[in-house]
């Protein structure tokens, strides 16, 4: 019931049904089902070759699906739906011999967008003063930013970004992420493909994890990526410890692992709190190790199973 109610209240921007793409015997995308809600920042997370770009290519009408369907705003893809979506697939694609401005003019023609927006967009991505430089003279970061300007040229409701920070230096990465968040704050829906869990965690509200073309898991980022600390404790007598852990409200979960107990705490609590409460109950721990599961480790676990 919950989900049907939700679909009435929240408009679905992109719906993917059993989408598949085969290259010979290789299944690049395998019966994928996804729903992107309006206003979300939807991350497509997966290692290289997991089918992210192929999926985006199919819903953007440049790769023919082998099977399945998709719809934008509840209808089939058309010129009208394309004009509501701004997208970058893989690398920024421009005419190298044309200036930034000229390139955007060509794109504005295609999108039936007003040329008046060009200066505004160039300013927004910080290329206002470089509008007459040819594209081939741009650094990778500038190329990525020009691609963002191009994608936003006709003020689309949805932005599709494929690895937008790929190949950028830390400053460039920070700039692009900041830009994405600023755009999202205007209420736009963003679909973002990335192989970086860190990026998805920092930017996205929802995430779908892909592995070899299959959906591993999807949902709100908070449910899938946990920021909590993990603790490993041991004591001479484990039974009283287990009894106490059940009563401590800030312990979210715990499990015995051989002679150790692995547990996670709520946000805001740390090993210090646990140690104090144990000691207050007369329990002396023989070992207390706080280990923060790295995002890389979580990511590897996500795509392993």
């Amino acid at each position: 019931m919950g989900s049907s109610l939700k679909s009435i209240l929240v408009a679905i921007v992109l719906s993917i049904d059993n989408l598949s793409k085969k290259y010979g015997s290789l299944k690049a995308v395998d019966n994928l089902n996804l729903q992107v809600e309006e206003g979300s920042i939807y991350g497509l997370l997966g290692p290289n070759g997991s089918g992210k770009t192929t999926t985006l290519g199919m819903v953007l009408d440049v790769i023919r699906p082998t099977g399945g369907t998709f719809s934008w705003f509840g209808e089939g893809i058309s010129k009208a739906t394309k004009h509501r979506v701004g997208a970058i697939l893989e690398t920024p694609n421009f005419y190298p011999y044309l200036s930034a401005r000229r390139n955007l003019e060509v794109i504005a023609d295609n999108k039936a967008a007003s040329h008046d927006n060009i200066n505004k967009m160039l300013d927004l991505v910080g290329l206002g003063t470089r509008s007459h430089t040819t594209f081939k003279g741009f650094s990778l970061g500038m190329k990525q930013r020009l691609a963002l300007a191009a994608a936003m040229l006709n003020d689309p409701e949805v932005l599709v970004l494929d690895e937008p920070t790929n190949g950028l230096d830390p400053q460039g990465i920070a700039e692009v992420r900041d830009l994405i968040l600023r755009i999202a704050a205007q209420g736009k829906t963003i679909i973002l493909a990335s192989h970086l869990l860190d990026e998805v965690e920092k930017v996205c509200t929802h995430v779908a994890v892909l592995r070899t073309g299959k959906l591993v898991t999807d949902g709100p980022v908070g449910n899938i990526v946990s920021k909590a600390e993990q603790l490993l404790i041991s004591a001479d007598e484990l039974q009283p410890v287990l009894t106490l852990l059940e009563r401590l409200p800030y312990v979210t979960q715990f499990a015995q692992e051989k002679s150790n107990i692995i547990l996670t705490l709520q946000d805001g609590y740390s090993a210090t709190d646990l140690n104090r409460d144990m000691f207050a109950q007369g329990i002396v721990l023989s070992q207390l190790v706080a280990r923060r599961t790295t995002l890389e480790k979580q990511f590897l676990e996500l795509i392993k199973s």
Binding site: L60, D61, V62, K79, K82, H83, A87, L89, E90, T91, N93, F94, Y95, P96, V106, I107, N110, K111, A112, A150
Partner: peptide, 14 residues
């Protein structure tokens, strides 16, 4: 080679 046809199709060119 510039992948601009791809981009134009994405942007709405049939």
């Amino acid at each position: 080679s510039y992948r601009t046809l791809r981009q134009q199709v994405i942007d709405g060119l049939s």
